[in-house]
């Protein structure tokens, strides 16, 4: 029995590892599989991936995993220390279970991360590749706008946006995205400048391809890998910025279990009841670290310059 399964696995692997794929799908899968192999050989990146999969799992099954209702207040039970009866991580100033709040808070964190990761790099990619490919006055205008955004400290600019738009998690996400896109635009433009004069872009131009096709089909695929890496490395900063806005009372509003807002609530008791602020802080730390580790691993896999030389 075991013999059959081994040969099947070998056949399957050989099919993926072949240097003469027989179809489009096989070629694509094979290149994905090679990426996965090189990613898997990096234990730190795998650790990051496992933590993030855990975060996804937690967010998806929060109602099943949380031992208590995150909004249920019992003032009699307030500020219980960790490992106390029925509250693994203790309770906060209103007697709410901190573990349950962190578990539910993972949903908000994922929402922030997902939306910022969708908005900012896409905006940056658009601005950067258009500026880089077309050049001339359009490049100057787009890049000076980018410079203006870059000149502001990120949190201060986000603060200004939230103050103008009104407090709330949705506006906080928007504000963070608005402050996060300029570095992506710079990266995308720099990549585009090195790509645009290469022979393979000239070659496709000689087939009569227009700028739209060249940018979307030929330049984007080469920019995206470095942007993905940058996104994962930035995610830690995004979570912290969201937490910072929450901490300042401009992000998620009480009683929302957003991690930054939880720290903000806990700061009043930080000397006597350290766990109220520490536990969500540890959650932020863990997820930020996981994103950083994942980003490092992805850089090794996706960076076209590291892979193409050989």
């Amino acid at each position: 029995m075991s013999d059959i399964s081994t040969t099947e696995t070998v056949g399957w692997r050989a099919w993926l590892m072949t240097d003469a794929p027989g179809s489009r799908t096989q070629a694509r899968l094979a290149s994905l599989y090679n990426g996965w192999l090189s990613f898997r050989s990096n234990p730190m990146a795998m650790a990051g991936l496992v933590i993030l999969l855990g975060l996804l799992f937690t967010a998806a099954f929060a109602p099943l995993l949380a031992p208590h209702d995150p909004f249920y207040q019992t003032l009699a039970n307030r500020l219980q220390p960790p490992l106390s009866d029925g509250h693994l991580l203790g309770t906060d100033s209103l007697g709410r279970d901190i573990l349950s709040r962190i578990i539910y808070g993972s949903r908000i964190t994922l929402q922030i991360v997902f939306l910022v990761a969708v908005i900012a790099p896409v905006a940056g990619l658009l601005v950067g590749t258009i500026a880089g490919y077309t050049g001339g006055w359009l490049d100057v205008i787009l890049m000076r706008i980018t410079d203006i955004f870059l000149a502001f400290p990120r949190l201060v600019l986000a603060l200004a946006f939230v103050a103008a738009l009104g407090a709330g998690i949705g506006n906080a996400i928007l504000a963070i995205s608005l402050t996060a896109w300029p570095p992506y635009a710079r990266i995308a433009r720099a990549e585009t400048l090195t790509i645009r004069n290469s022979d393979y872009i000239s070659a496709i131009r000689l087939q009569g391809a227009g700028p739209l096709r060249i940018i979307t089909k030929h330049i984007w695929p080469l920019c995206i890998s470095s942007l993905i890496v940058r996104v994962t490395l930035d995610m830690a900063g995004v979570i912290l910025a969201a937490a910072g806005l929450g901490f300042l009372g401009l992000g998620a509003q009480p009683p929302s279990p957003e991690w930054g807002a939880m720290i903000s609530e806990g700061r009043k008791f930080i000397l006597d009841h350290w766990w109220v602020a520490t536990m969500p802080g540890l959650a932020i730390f863990t997820v930020s670290l996981a994103f950083n580790l994942l980003g490092d691993g992805l850089r090794d896999v996706l960076d076209p310059k590291s892979g193409e030389g050989s």
């Binding site: 794929p21 489009r24 070629a27 290469s198 022979d199 393979y200 000239s202 070659a203 496709i204 000689l206 087939q207 009569g208 391809a209 089909k217 030929h218 695929p221 080469l222 076209p304 193409e308």
Partner: peptide, 27 residues
């Protein structure tokens, strides 16, 4: 036109099939 350096004239993320199919489609 055929370019000088075949290491620079093919898109690193496109299979031979994709290169030729796009060229045919464009024409």
């Amino acid at each position: 036109m055929v370019f000088q350096d075949p290491y620079a004239s093919l898109h690193p993320r496109q299979t031979v099939d994709a290169v030729l199919a796009e060229t045919l489609k464009l024409h």
